[in-house]
Nucleic acid binder design. Structure first.
Lengths: 146, 146
DNA sequence: TATTGTTATACTCTATAACTATA
DNA sequence: TATAGTTATAGAGTATAACAATA
């Protein structure tokens, strides 16, 4: 028998939120990667740099919870960013368990470049939406408790 | 110095689609897992079972592209489902490169159980939305080209 | 030559648990 | 006892490249 030419049916997956979130994220992350891989900036790296710029001196655990990673997952990531000279870890003087995180000048510069590319990426990825629709989408997504 | 009590600011991440998609997916998949882990059904497994029920006899490559995986990633997954007695691979009689996939009776039964739990999960995860809002969300997500 | 399923392999992301040093 | 960061480890998920069988 020849393979059927009918389009594959997705059945109940059509109404499945998680499935559609995954497909959307796949498309969006792929576009992100196409735009920012030349800078060596993944979505996770971007979120870390951005949060550190907004919150200089943040501790590792607080950073981890802000970007929704385990604090143990933060360590190798910060190791790499440290090796690249983008982020500094400074031991706290008052509570020596804490390390305060700061973007270096190189980190701030890279983030600035990344911001421009992220803007392009966001615009491209959101071409299917009007400004109102994008706003509505973001607002709906936020309700999942993210 | 005591650690700042201010909420961590997310800066431009607030308007970042990919970041919000990730947070939403994290929340949704976590809920899915809480409901269906007892059945040994992950989101990926569920999507495969559902697509096979809808499209009996599908080949591996077509299944892979339907659920957006590489065909090589399909192999270990189908191995596991085969070992669990949920899915059969039948060599095609006409094109011996193809293998046609079928849900077994056990697979259909498990999917039926899963469907009920997925319904519960979907309802719970979508409590923040009216029916109209959910529909709007799904429609917006679909526009990413997923 | 091209395609299907397969294998071997490796990489990314992430979490869990246990350790250390502090508090 | 509790917390911050670390380490070691493992698991899931996924992809790439190359191979055998077949078309």
């Amino acid at each position: 028998m020849p393979t059927s030419r009918k389009a594959t049916s997705l059945g109940s997956l059509t109404g499945n939120v998680g499935f559609h979130l995954r497909l959307a994220q796949l498309a969006v992350f792929k576009d992100f990667d196409g735009e920012l891989s030349e800078l060596g900036v993944s979505p996770a790296v971007y979120s870390v740099l951005e949060v550190l710029q907004q919150n200089p001196g943040l501790t590792q655990s607080k950073l981890a919870s802000a970007v929704r990673l385990d604090r143990s997952s933060m360590v190798p990531m910060l190791d790499k960013l440290g090796q690249r000279g983008l982020v500094e870890r400074l031991a706290s003087t008052t509570d020596r368990r804490h390390k305060h995180l700061y973007l270096t000048a190189a980190g701030a510069k890279l983030l600035h470049q990344a911001d421009k590319l992220v803007s392009k990426h966001e615009k491209r990825v959101c071409t299917p939406f009007t400004a109102k629709e994008k706003q509505a989408l973001m607002e709906l997504l936020a309700r999942f408790g993210g």
